[in-house]
Design a protein around this nucleic acid. Structure first.
Length: 602
RNA sequence: GCCACCUUAGCUCAGUCGGUGGAGCAAGCGUUUCGUAAACGCUAGGUCGUGAGUUCGAGUCUCACAGGUGGCUCCA
């Protein structure tokens, strides 16, 4: 989003200070928390004497401009802890930070201190411009005029817990954005507008893809026929792809005995995310929050030989999780999640090959659906504290190396996140970048040394002894709901031909062409195309416009000439007019594009 | 769950100071039969998210609840 983020950082941080001064001027008695630069701007947290609203923004922005024009220098100084306590005696949040820094809980730059290097300090860093003094490590621009007065804008207000903890008081956070020039600001605002146009909730309504009716409940979507059509195509594609890669597909119940998730360990760790158990004949059952135990049952169904592994058990399965109400967002965050889930049972020596199989499938699918940029995160152990992980050192090292080797062999760059691994095994997460450059986390591939033990899974090895397999959990798309939302936004609702819910709209020019239009529809349907006919008593222009707004790839205009020649006039949703062509030619063209899952329309 | 804001016709929105609710699109009916992004007319459509309260009187003010939006926290 911001390639020159490093240059912008001091500017934005300085804008945060300027905003804080303005807010303090306009809201006497306000207490302030922290105010850093962030990805697209800055924020500052306040405790205010009255709620602030967006109507206050112009006044705050105007005061900020006055401060900027005052040409104040940002002066850096150092104070002793005692001096600082006096300087900020009316600012309880700052006093807390000073104490934390003095004790070494926070580094002198306010970062979370490395526990190995805990040491207190007796001085703190201070920045001041005009009347505003802040406990701050900087860096800042030299002078307030370096923050262009026409290149910032206050954006929104949000509640934010002091120091990020739910237990602490909630402060008012004011977000702003700031850039080097008005043009950059305008570009950014344009991008936000563009994102709004692509919002899957808006498009979902306009294109009749899905609904989230109040009557059903929060986070519980209903897929309308068109959305369901697209989803089915994605699922069928994934299914075929998995069959080709040696997966076996199963179906499992949507509920099961609570004991299953006690055995898996989920109940202890994630019980608060599950729906309350229901009593059936005196036994507690849960609506399933994850599939793992079901697939463990599949493995346990028969005695397994080392020769059988890997065994790949897949299921496009819906799980139910009690996400917090404030977190629900369209299809991106729902309470019923359909995962393209699978559990792969492998011998330790098969981890790398199997990881490659999953990685190849994942990248193949993303590329097919039009994504070309990815970001990979490998979550490994905390090298300083290897004891808190389950499984022996050798297994971990083997698995971590296998993940990295798989990525290396596909020339994938990745970020190693030390200490991010779950206690039961290392993992790979993949994010995709969409058409607007936004990153979305989709794929999770997780190595698990723990679950097979908990369910007492075994295979008989070559030497005749029983061994415990390793499990790989993996969901390349992640959640179908979420992935679908990302796809809608990526395509801006204009699905490629193979995925489009309606691939062609036949548009008769006048009523006398309806019979021929239906004939065209029938012929195309016989070839497997999804085609509708617009027989409304409307002008052709109106029919074209409506088909266009529905982002239907092809508008097939038929009038006297076409009816005569067994032809259709093909208009693309891009506006391009391919003119009349024999119907057979159109079928050949469209078939080629569908079969190759092309992003093109011709 | 927490903070702020929002909820008016199927959709997008207007509604002043508290005084019996409007528009465009969509829908139904009629006219029009048209060559690449919106033909014309008529009709119907609403207990203003739900429930309470203040008031002679509430879409408008207060409170509670539900749903949504943006964040926070969380995200197996």
């Amino acid at each position: 989003m911001d390639n020159n983020g490093d240059n912008l950082r001091p500017l934005r941080h300085s804008a945060a200070h300027i905003m804080a001064e303005a807010v303090l001027d306009l809201f006497p008695g306000a207490k302030f928390g922290i105010g850093p630069a962030i990805e697209s701007g800055f924020y500052y947290d306040f405790e205010l004497p009255r709620p602030v609203t967006p109507e206050d923004f112009p006044a705050i922005e105007n005061r900020m401009r006055e401060i900027i024009r005052g040409k104040y220098n940002f002066n850096h100084s150092t104070q002793t802890v005692a001096q600082a306590r006096e300087s900020f005696k009316d600012q309880p949040f700052k006093l807390e930070l000073i104490d934390a820094i003095a004790k070494g809980e926070l580094g002198t730059h306010g970062e979370n201190s490395d526990p190995d290097a805990v040491r207190g300090t007796d001085t703190v860093s201070i920045y001041q411009h005009d009347t505003f003094m802040d406990l701050c490590a900087g860096p800042h621009v030299h002078n307030t005029v370096e923050v262009p007065e026409d290149a910032f804008k206050l954006m929104q207000i949000a509640g934010a817990y002091w120091r990020g903890s739910e237990k602490n008081p909630q402060l008012t956070r004011i977000y702003g954005t700031a850039w080097q020039s008005k043009k950059e600001l305008d570009d950014y605002l344009w991008k936000l507008e563009e994102a709004k146009k692509r919002d899957h909730r808006k498009l979902g309504k306009e294109l009749e893809l899905f609904i989230l009716p109040d009557e059903v409940g929060s986070g519980l979507p209903i897929w309308l026929p068109k959305g369901a059509q697209v989803r089915r195509l994605i699922e069928e594609y994934v299914y075929q792809n998995q069959v080709a890669r040696g997966y076996q597909h199963v179906y499992s119940p949507h509920m099961g005995k609570k004991q299953l998730w006690i055995t898996s360990g989920h109940w202890d760790l994630y019980g608060d995310k599950m729906y309350a158990p229901m009593d059936i004949d005196g036994v507690d059952y849960l609506v399933k929050p994850m599939n793992c135990p079901m697939h463990m049952m599949v493995y346990k169904n028969s005695l397994r030989s080392y020769k059988e592994l890997p065994i790949r058990i897949a299921e496009n399965a819906t799980v139910y999780r009690r996400e917090q109400s404030g977190e629900l967002t369209g299809l991106l965050r729902v309470r019923m999640i359909t995962q393209d889930d699978a559990h792969i049972f492998v011998r330790p020596d098969q981890i790398q090959d199997e990881f490659l199989n999953v990685l190849d499938q994942t990248l193949d699918q993303f590329r097919t659906m039009g994504f070309s940029e990815f970001e990979a995160w490998v979550s490994v152990r905390d090298p300083k504290n290897k004891t808190k992980y389950l499984g022996d050192d050798e297994s971990w090292t083997n698995a971590e190396d296998a993940i990295k080797a798989a990525l290396d062999s596909r020339d994938m760059e990745y970020i190693v996140a030390e200490g991010e691994a779950k206690f039961y095994g290392p993992a790979l997460d993949i994010m995709v970048k969409d058409a607007l450059g936004r990153k979305w986390q989709c794929t999770t591939i997780q190595v698990d040394f723990q679950l097979p033990r908990r369910f007492q899974l075994e295979y008989i090895d070559a030497d005749g002894t029983a061994k415990t397999p390793v499990v790989l959990h993996r969901a390349p798309l992640g959640s179908i709901e979420r992935f679908f939302a990302i796809l809608v936004e990526h395509y801006a609702g204009a699905f490629p031909v193979w995925l489009a819910p309606v691939q062609a709209m036949v548009i008769p020019i006048a009523d006398r062409h309806n019979d021929y239009a239906f004939e065209v529809q029938k012929k195309l349907q016989a070839q497997g195309f999804r085609v509708e006919v617009d027989t409304r008593s409307e002008r052709m222009n109106a029919k074209i416009r409506d088909a266009q707004l529905q982002k239907i790839p092809y508008m097939l205009v038929v009038g006297d000439k076409e009816a005569q020649a067994a032809a259709v006039s093909v208009r693309l949703r891009t506006g391009e007019d391919l003119k009349a062509m024999p119907l057979d030619d159109f079928v050949a063209m469209a078939k080629r594009l569908v079969e190759s899952k092309s992003m093109e329309l011709k």
